[in-house]
Structure formats: structure tokens, C-alpha cells
Write a protein that binds this DNA or RNA. Structure first.
Length: 511
DNA sequence: GGGCTGTACTG
DNA sequence: CAGTAC
DNA sequence: GCCC
């Protein structure tokens, strides 16, 4: 495994001059036997059985109902592009019931179907309007002020089930009637942030385990592939759609539903239909099983290594695992990347909520000691979203007296280092304090207020220094601290800023 | 068809 | 300036 | 990939 090589390489590193480097060296040479636990292994054991065959017709359900369907032309061209029959659902513009020709009673069926197809546009319009008024299960959403009833991302204009007048009403008065929004369709009522076109993710709440987590997990795989291949735009697109889906409080039932969400369009809806039919998404599975991407993901998970460097390690340097990185590239790594490799496994470990709380309490205590009891602290990030296990710890510190926050980040890090809670400082930003001082010098008041929107912060490595010596060897003269190292972000916020405002709304830690 | 969050640190 | 992280 |  890479343990041996990483240990071996520590010798080369002994020339390192910085304190942190020596610390790395020391700990590398004393790593425990648990180190290999997160090394990638053959995944043959966890390969899942596919329950439904891929050949299943995605449109079966649609062919078995008696409605006439009008699809966007893109259904055909997209299907041609992909050389397969795509689900029609995302392209569905209109479904019309087959009814008897007025004054020409006939039994429903073939004849009526033929009649429907040969209707003149005018009479189709009339029937469509009638459908829209009478049929409360009209399949086409007509309340979205964004899509105006249009399905899919193309340029086809709105279908004819709503009159221009009713569309305008929906656009201008979409909030006048709650009933208006939940009742005229077979889709569930949209949450307010959908109805009102809320633009920012911070304006809606997101739950720890959203109802559509399984679908989101598939999208995340595609997003990761976009990330690793350097498709930043793709990452952005998937990020926004995933964020909307994560905030969506209902279990999705149809692809059309997705089209109403901001940042989601035909592509995502298609993926959902595929997911609903097969329980998986081929593109996501392919990305996950791709050998190149697997290696690049391994490197990407090193803190301080991004997509570009991960690809470089793989394609230019020709490395395949962490052993290679340590053996052939250690000296070329940046300081933080060395730390990232050193604690590769530990940083991937989930952090229990209780430990997050302990860490936050320690930081808070030090902050109070350094300033006063006016210090307020708030844990954000995964913890605040209610997750059982967090990837890192994010804590915001503030103080009603803004002068008390000046340079506090430096003081806190020093204090926590002093007590050995912080083992490494990955990065510390004092921009705001720096500017604040300048402003103070020129202008004795109002240190903030001219566009101070950046925050002092420190990204550190944390380890609980209190440990119980190994029970297996209680008389060990040099016992080892096996508490896992954690990633902790400490952020300082001016009290009046929007972030600090959350203090009044969420669980404050009182001094 | 053009644009895509904004900012700070490191090397 | 490129790369990274939040 | 989605939005304007």
C-alpha cells in the first residue's frame, strides 16, 4: 500500500525547513495501521444488480393511454442525435382527449383518432381551450411565469391550452390566489420559491436529506465528471439544478415537474425520466466507472489539488495513486498539498455532530478569552443543514462591537495553536482587518460600510490534543494521538452583516 | 448568441 | 497569472 | 446546461 512509500519518502522530506513540514514528517513516520482503509479497492464487490433491463420502452406508459400527444420537434432530432428513442415526457406540449365530433356521434376509437389528427388548426384551438377550462388534469403546466407553459428548452411558443389573457394573468398575479397555483394541474403545488421566481439559493431552505436525494446523487456524479474534465460551465449548470432539486420538498413524480424549477430544463428532465424508469442514469454510471476519472478523483480529493492539477498528475505526470504522488512528486507539491496528502484519509472521514459542537465550543471559549463575553458564534455549513455527519466544521464568529473583531482571527489561531488544537494553518485571510485598520487611521469611525463584504477567515487543520493512550500498550513511553485530524474553517463576520443577522434566527451559542 | 459569483491567498 | 478554496 |  502507499503507507510504506509515504513513510519511506519522509526521509527525503527531512530537509524541509518549515515547522509544518517537520510536523508532517514526524507524523508520517508514526502513522497508524488504519491508514489504508480508504485506499481505493476493487469495487467488484459492491457492483449492484440491475433490476430492470435497459431495453425497457421509456414511453410505454404514454402509448397505453388514449390521449393525442403533441411533442416538440426536438424530441425527434434529439432522439436521432442519440440514436435511441428518448422519453417523450419532457417534450410533451399537449395531450388532448379524443372526443366525438360535435353533432356527429361516434364510438371512441380509431375513427375519432383520425378525426382528431385531421382537425383544422382552428378547431383544435377551440377544443384545446375547452380542455384547459374543463379538464383540471391538464398536463401542461400553465402557471410558470418563466416558461409560460412551454415545455422543454426550445423556441416553440406556448401551447394553446391557455389564452393570452390567462397567461398574462398568471404572469402578473401569480400570487393572488393560492388555489390558482395548486389546483389546476396534476402537479404538486410548487413551493413559494418556485412560484415567486426566487433567484438565490440562500432565500430558500434546504434539508439535510431531500426527498429526491437518490436522483441528486446521480446528478452529482455527472457534475463531478464535468468538474474533472474542466467543463466549468457544465459544473455551474449542474450545480444550480442540483441546488434547486435539493430544495424541492416533494418527491418528484414527473419530468414536467422539473421544468418548473429554476436552473432545470429539458436535459435534467430527461435525466429524471431515465432515472425514474431505470433507477439509474447511464451517463452517471459511465462517469463513475470511468478509469481515468477514478484516478483524477483520487487526486482531486487531496486538499489543495483542484481539477487542473488532478488531471496534470494523471495525464502529464502519469501517476496513478497516492504512492506515485509521494514517491515521485512530493517535493513539487505545495505546502498545503503536502498536508492534504498527509491527512488524505482523515479529511475524508465524516465528523459526528457532537464533535462539531465540541470544536465550536472550544473556539468560542478561546474567542471569549481573547476578547469578551460579547462574542457570538454560529456553526454553519453541513452542521447547520442538519447533517448527521459533516465533512468539515464551519464556524462564524462575530461581536456587536466591531472593533473587537479586528485581528481576532490571528489571535484565535495563535491561541488554539498554543493549546495544540490547531496543528496546521492552511490559509489565513486578514484582508478585512487590514483594510479596516487603514480606514481607521484615516477615518476614526465607521470601519465598515464601504463595500466590506469579504470576511477574515482561517482554514486550519484541527486535532483534539487530549487523547487516551493506547490500551494495548499503556506503558508506551511515547503514546500517539490517534484522534483524527479535521478541517475547520473559522470565519469572522462584522456583526451587522447579513451573515451575522442569522444569529437572531438560529441557535446562538451563548457565552 | 453571449454570459456564467466574487474574493483572497499562494507560488 | 494560474490554480485553489470558500 | 440554462438564462436573458
Amino acid at each position: 500500500g502507499h503507507k510504506a512509500k509515504r513513510g519511506k519518502l519522509s526521509g527525503e522530506y527531512e530537509d524541509g525547513k518549515k515547522e509544518t513540514e517537520e510536523s508532517i514528517l514526524h507524523e508520517i513516520s508514526t502513522d497508524s495501521e488504519t491508514e489504508d482503509e480508504h485506499k481505493p479497492k476493487s469495487n467488484s464487490a459492491k457492483r449492484k444488480r440491475v433490476s430492470s433491463p435497459v431495453e425497457q420502452d421509456p414511453n410505454e406508459a404514454y402509448f397505453s393511454n388514449p390521449y393525442i400527444k403533441v411533442l416538440k420537434w426536438e424530441w425527434f432530432t434529439d432522439s436521432q442525435k442519440e440514436s435511441r428513442v428518448l422519453p417523450i415526457e419532457p417534450y410533451l406540449l399537449y395531450q388532448g382527449r379524443i372526443i366525438d365530433r360535435p353533432g356527429d356521434p361516434k364510438t371512441p376509437g380509431k375513427g375519432s383518432s383520425f378525426t382528431a389528427r385531421t382537425k383544422t388548426p382552428q378547431s383544435i384551438l377551440e377544443r384545446a381551450r375547452a380542455d384547459a377550462e374543463n379538464d383540471t388534469s391538464s398536463p401542461v403546466q400553465q402557471r410558470s411565469n418563466r416558461k409560460l407553459g412551454q415545455i422543454g428548452g426550445g423556441r416553440v411558443s406556448a401551447p394553446f391550452q391557455t389564452t393570452p389573457h390567462s397567461k398574462r394573468a398568471a404572469l402578473l398575479h401569480q400570487t393572488t390566489s393560492e388555489h390558482d397555483l395548486g389546483q389546476s394541474s396534476d402537479l404538486p403545488e410548487m413551493p413559494p420559491w418556485v412560484q415567486n421566481d426566487v433567484k438565490y439559493a440562500c432565500q430558500r431552505s434546504t434539508h439535510a436529506d431531500p426527498p429526491n436525494a437518490a436522483f441528486i446523487a446521480q446528478l452529482d456524479k455527472i457534475k463531478l465528471a464535468r468538474l474533472l474534465t474542466g467543463d466549468e460551465i457544465g459544473v455551474r449548470a449542474y450545480s444550480t439544478s442540483i441546488a434547486a432539486l435539493a430544495a424541492y420538498p416533494h418527491k418528484l413524480s414527473t419530468g414536467r415537474e422539473i421544468l418548473l424549477l429554476p436552473g432545470c430544463d429539458a436535459k435534467i428532465a430527461n435525466l429524471y425520466v431515465e432515472f425514474a424508469n431505470y433507477g439509474k442514469i447511464q451517463e452517471a454510471e459511465d462517469a463513475e466507472n470511468n478509469e481515468e476519472l477514478k484516478v483524477q478523483k483520487l487526486f482531486y480529493n487531496i486538499w489543495g489539488v483542484g481539477a487542473t492539477t488532478a488531471r496534470d498528475f494523471h495525464k502529464e505526470k502519469g501517476w496513478r495513486d497516492l504512492d506515485d504522488v509521494v514517491e515521485y512528486g512530493w517535493q513539487t507539491l505545495t505546502r498545503v498539498q503536502q498536508i492534504g496528502v498527509k491527512y488524505y484519509d482523515e479529511f475524508l472521514l465524516p465528523i459526528p455532530r457532537s464533535e462539531v459542537e465540541d470544536i465550536a465550543a472550544t473556539i468560542h471559549k478561546h474567542a471569549v478569552k481573547l476578547r469578551d463575553a460579547g462574542i457570538q458564534s454560529l456553526v454553519v455549513g453541513g452542521y447547520r443543514r442538519g447533517k448527521e455527519h459533516c465533512g468539515d466544521v464551519d464556524i462564524i464568529l462575530s461581536h456587536p462591537d466591531e472593533s473587537k473583531t479586528l485581528n481576532i482571527i490571528t489571535d484565535i489561531v495563535a491561541s488554539l495553536e498554543q493549546e495544540s488544537w490547531i496543528t496546521h494553518t492552511l490559509l489565513i485571510s486578514t484582508k478585512t482587518s487590514d483594510r479596516g485598520q487603514q480606514t481607521l487611521a484615516l477615518n476614526s469611525s465607521s470601519t465598515h460600510g464601504h463595500g466590506f463584504d469579504s470576511l477574515d477567515k482561517a482554514l486550519v487543520v484541527w486535532q483534539n490534543p487530549h487523547y487516551t493512550p493506547s490500551t494495548s500498550n499503556p506503558s508506551d513511553p511515547k503514546p500517539k494521538n490517534t484522534n483524527p485530524h479535521r478541517r475547520v474553517d473559522i470565519i469572522i463576520s462584522p456583526f451587522k452583516s447579513g451573515v451575522a443577522l442569522q444569529f437572531s434566527l438560529t441557535s446562538l451559542r451563548k457565552s
